[in-house]
């Protein structure tokens, strides 16, 4: 069985929640959502996951499925409560990210009159200040990985981030254990070279010697992903093979 890039991304996202125990795994983006549910189905069974809306499902459910049995409600105000209490590990997206993990989802260009208005800060400032945060970025490019972000929505290691864990992209996995809390390459997805990643990154990336490949999904993880969580392979739309 050939493992696709999207499947490597899903397990790399799942790994972000390893060891977290009984916290909410809040996920944004297809591979990130699948990763949270896969982690809960396998090595991190105490995680809480949602139906994509305000329901905490009794068990992880397939992408887009009805909630089925529910173990709790999670209205937005309770999300914000979990943020404040730190009982949540969120994996967000970012339109721009800098070497310290500052991220922008607010606006491109001058904030006063932006070239492109994006979502707005949403929960990014509070998330990054109060609970563990990771990022899932499906298109690793120099337009996203920039020396300076136009607006700091999510704060980085140089601005008092609570706990920036890792960044997963379609090319590799990164953490913030580089010099002065900067981004460091941790593993390279199978079929990708370090040079490709460096070329796709608009700032100097810490790369420590020989880089291991990102681990492949296990047979059981592949089965759960393909047959249960995402039988329509929506993951391939986010990360084309």
């Amino acid at each position: 069985m050939t493992v696709t890039r999207a499947e490597v991304c899903v397990t790399a996202c799942a790994e972000a929640w390893r060891g977290d125990g009984e916290v909410l795994a809040a996920a944004m983006g297809t591979c990130s959502i699948l990763g949270a549910r896969l982690a809960r189905l396998t090595f991190e069974p105490a995680l809480l996951t949602t139906d994509g809306g305000a329901l905490l499902t009794a068990e992880p459910i397939p992408l887009g499925a009805e909630a089925g049995a529910v173990e709790g409600g999670l209205p937005f105000r309770d999300h914000l409560w979990l943020v404040a209490a730190g009982r949540r590990h969120v994996m967000m997206g970012a339109s721009q990210i800098d070497p310290y993990g500052n991220t922008n989802i607010s606006a491109i260009g001058d904030w006063e009159r932006p070239k492109s208005q994006l979502l707005g800060a949403r929960g990014a400032p509070g998330n990054t200040r109060c609970n563990p945060t990771s990022y899932w970025i499906p298109r690793h490019s120099p337009r996203v990985f920039v020396e300076r972000v136009d607006f700091v929505s999510g704060i980085g290691t140089d601005r008092g981030a609570f706990d920036l864990r890792r960044v997963v992209t379609d090319l590799g996995v990164f953490d913030f254990a580089g010099p002065d809390g900067t981004m460091r390459l941790v593993s390279v997805h199978p079929g990708v070279t370090v040079d490709e990643i460096v070329a796709a990154t608009g700032f100097e990336l810490a790369v420590a010697g020989d880089m291991p490949p990102t681990r492949a999904p296990t047979d059981e993880e592949l089965r759960l992903l393909r047959e249960f969580l995402d039988p329509r392979a929506l993951r391939d739309r986010e990360v084309p093979t």
């Binding site: 932006p114 208005q117 509070g126």
Partner: peptide, 24 residues
Amino acid sequence: ALEPHFRAARRSGSIAFTEYDEGM
């Protein structure tokens, strides 16, 4: 994800914007 009329208003500068975090 994005609201087209709000984006246009921001681009043109026709509205002022006070941006907060959703928990704030």
